[in-house]
Write a protein that binds this DNA or RNA. Sequence first.
DNA 1: ATGGGCGTTGCGCATACTGCAACGTGATGG
DNA 2: CCATCACGTTGCAGTATGCGCAACGCCCAT
Lengths: 254, 254
Amino acid sequence: MSQTVDRALSILPLLAEGPADLGQVADRLGVHKSTALRLLRTLHEHGLVHRQQDQRYRLGARLFALAQEAVENLDVREIAHPHLVALNEQIGHTVHLAVYEESEVLYIDKVESRYPVRMYSRIGKPVAITVAAVAKLLLADLPEAERRALAEKLDFPMYTSRSIPNAGAFLKELATVREQGWATDLGGHEESINCIGAPIRGADGRVVAAMSVSAPNVVVTADELLTLLPLVRRTADAISREYSGQPPRQEERP
Amino acid sequence: MSQTVDRALSILPLLAEGPADLGQVADRLGVHKSTALRLLRTLHEHGLVHRQQDQRYRLGARLFALAQEAVENLDVREIAHPHLVALNEQIGHTVHLAVYEESEVLYIDKVESRYPVRMYSRIGKPVAITVAAVAKLLLADLPEAERRALAEKLDFPMYTSRSIPNAGAFLKELATVREQGWATDLGGHEESINCIGAPIRGADGRVVAAMSVSAPNVVVTADELLTLLPLVRRTADAISREYSGQPPRQEERP
DNA sequence: ATGGGCGTTGCGCATACTGCAACGTGATGG
DNA sequence: CCATCACGTTGCAGTATGCGCAACGCCCAT
């Protein structure tokens, strides 16, 4: 690898600790001042480093801009898809991916069950927001005030006898989901269908998407479905890691 | 400046647009593939670049971590102080700097008036949150739900006849402040004291602090104070630019 | 089978980076 | 008030270091 670049990049974590002047940078790099100066100049031209008027250097605005731009251009679906397919191949049931957008939860990807019995859902279609596992996961991560405001606005249709009936019960359920880090929908939308879901998180820990596995009673019981939970959570975590740009753990290739 | 580092850093904005493979990077840099490979490897070792399993490169987790760390280590007060002093020297009145923290607005810096008449305020002391100009500026930037939740919780003491009396009036005032980008307190806290304030924003546009200029009626009338508004706003903008690591505009050295 | 596209490696050459020493400047203190 | 120091900056000569080339291995598609 490149020595020059290596040295230059070593400056960044150093400046992350706090502002430093030329001498300090040169010392900690173990190079001559003039060398450090040239490196800092280059970093400066790219905006990664900012020079304050006491001449000391700190990290620059470009760093934020880059991180932000990268996040905006990140496509959860693209990253998640191979993982979802792999999971589907392993367990056979329908797998969903959903995001929260403007007070709605939308399916953005789906891998169909291998079994003949299928369920009604369509990519781009809003989710039954008061009962679906993915909806619970996404809403559970909202700031408390927003969560409460949204809960007040919602209708709570009784799709089945096990649907969540009102805002109070809903907020309580969200608290549980937030606590445990996974969610279920056991016959709350369609009497005979159960779901288990897990959240996908970005680099900052915020939930950016949620995935779920759905199966009808006739194929597996709710209890059997729940035994798949560790697998689902591991898949979601693997997607989270890859989405946030961290190296994948061993043995977790999709 | 350094050619190698220059090339390496040029890769970052390129990858911010989206994932790219080795060939694309080499082409856009105008260098041989082997060169691009070495640069990418170095970036990779520092975690700034992440390799997904289709072999393409994207920005890595370290970049996000650095950006976040940089934000945390930013000290608004340190950056703002010389600007506040310069403003005080120019206009003579008391200048305040305040931030929002855990449902409170706190003074974190103050430059005393040159005039004998002073006002009561202390660094670290919570601000009269329902009337102070700085409080309005900071609260006006909160997410709508949080703003409303906070307004409901607050008391609205009638310091003077012009104090804001209730949550409704307060939220309306915040909407105005949010709209116009500056705020006043005309005798709302102490009958004879007026304030004008402006927000200080970070790189992402969020309000990170607010500053204000205060003066008693006996020195300048409210109308006279308002003529200083452009100056205050320009100072706040200069601080914002420096805080977010952008180069200062000409003729705006503190 | 066979070709093309891709990432990777080893190597010789010269470019571009390094460290030194000297200079300018602004602050400190005797 | 000048001396001294500390710090950033500049020009330069030597060479370490990064460069492009060409060849290799691999996988996929034809």
